[in-house]
Nucleic acid binder design. Structure first.
Lengths: 249, 249
DNA sequence: AGCCGAAAATTGGTATGACAATATCTGCGG
DNA sequence: CCGCAGATATTGTCATACCAATTTTCGGCT
């Protein structure tokens, strides 16, 4: 026979071909794919199959499909990993502690790598982020945002996008927890000091020092969290009645 | 109207409800879900929607759908993360180097955590794996398998499943590369020595020592790979004409 | 001409029904 | 008891129709 067995679902083969179209067609993020009906003709399958294939690629993070507009190539594709891990957490909540451990590992190394690779402009931008943090130190909302931004920027210094992708879900999930710790008196100011210390070591290119400061910072944060919750494992607001998939970037 | 805006796609709301059914129903991995038609009645939507919802949950790793049999709850859910990262690599191949860096970070810490948490039976099992490795040292196939198994078992010692999930894709992708380095004369024997050294430190509970040995091992491996490929970035056989999704666990 | 809004065209979302492909169960005959 | 063929259950694919959101077109008005 010409083709092998039809064991693989049509949906998957269609997704594969669409993926190849995207890759070989050099479609940059933001560009639109042909509409479903046209893909049907090109691939020689029904619209059902094309839709399932597009859905597959959307869930995997390659596309973003919008009602009435079409499917566009997604940049980054970070939310795919995040959503997957989020689902994992909802099925097995005990995985949260494990995720925290991974975050600890990665962030410490991130600090080290940042010390190796940060450019002057990175340092400058982070100083500004730190300043913004300082001004909003009494507004919990803005403070948490600035805090997250600081960590994100630090990660970006590593010039490792995949690292960013793998870290993003964790950070996102921890937003709520930071809000908890930020409500404790004094912690915000202390965190600010620690961030400054990290940035100082990064700016100096002191790899081991940066790692060390980050480790200290994370340990202090963990201690705060424990204190704030009375040793309980935190309920990080994982209830999400809707939005199993992602909407905006 | 009772319900709020219809902004969220029916597919997503259906997936959410099915997910809740799985969670609240305490369905263990391996158990079957109701057939599509029954879900249609229960959720009050068409089969189209139910199918797209099930597909979503399958891609996310919660389910495994088999033709003619139905949808069963999947254990682990590791392949979901792997497939997502794999797609990322196909769209942006340059991400491979970044993934390697992440692996380096994680494996070093894994060695440290293993030294903290390995149980006697773990050590025993790993010694056996090492012995199997020793006997097959001249058969590249079996050697690579044993090597991968050693690293996997080490990761399992951390008692951190999520860590395993995040590491799996990387290891899987690196199988091919290990085959390359294993073909160089002497490397297999040297890797064996290094593995033994790591295990020795783990068994002794020497956290820093284990980290150190692992770091040395990875550096040596990287050097070999560089030597074997003449400094080229390796082409790790990422071509996969089919199977965008996963079949077996 | 230029602006604005309604109508038309485009495109994804949902519903329905039918049939094919595959797995599982059932009962008959040996 | 075993083996095998048919019946049954369940997912996979197709075709069609219509709904909903968005974009584009175009005609009327200023």
């Amino acid at each position: 026979m010409a083709g092998q067995k039809r064991r693989t679902k049509l949906r998957d083969r269609a997704a594969e071909r669409i993926l190849e179209m995207v890759i070989s067609g050099n479609l940059s993020p933001g560009e639109r794919l042909p509409p479903e009906r046209e893909l049907c003709e090109r691939l020689g399958v029904s619209r059902t199959v094309v839709r399932e294939a597009l859905n597959l690629l959307e869930v995997r993070g390659l596309l973003e499909i919008e009602h009435g507009r079409g499917a566009v190539v997604s940049g980054g594709g970070g939310h795919a990993v995040r959503d997957t891990l989020e689902l994992l957490l909802r099925v097995r909540p005990r995985a949260l502690g494990e995720l925290l451990e991974i975050r600890r590992i990665l962030e410490v190394e991130i600090a080290g790598l940042a010390a190796e690779r940060a450019l002057p402009e990175d340092v400058r931008a982070m100083r500004e982020a730190l300043d913004r943090m300082r001004t909003r130190i009494d507004a919990p909302e803005g403070y948490v945002d600035a805090d997250v931004e600081f960590h994100a920027h630090l990660a970006r210094c590593t010039r490792n996008e995949v690292l960013l992708v793998m870290l993003e879900p964790v950070v996102e999930l921890l937003r709520a927890s930071r809000r908890v710790t930020a409500s404790l008196p004094g912690t915000a100011r202390r965190a600010l000091r620690e961030h400054a210390a990290i940035l100082d070591r990064v700016a100096a290119g002191d790899v081991e020092g940066a790692r060390c400061e980050m480790r200290a910072h994370l340990m202090a944060t963990a201690r705060d969290m424990e204190r704030a919750t009375g040793g309980q494992v935190v309920d990080l607001g994982l209830r999400r009645p809707e939005r199993l998939t992602e909407g905006g970037s």
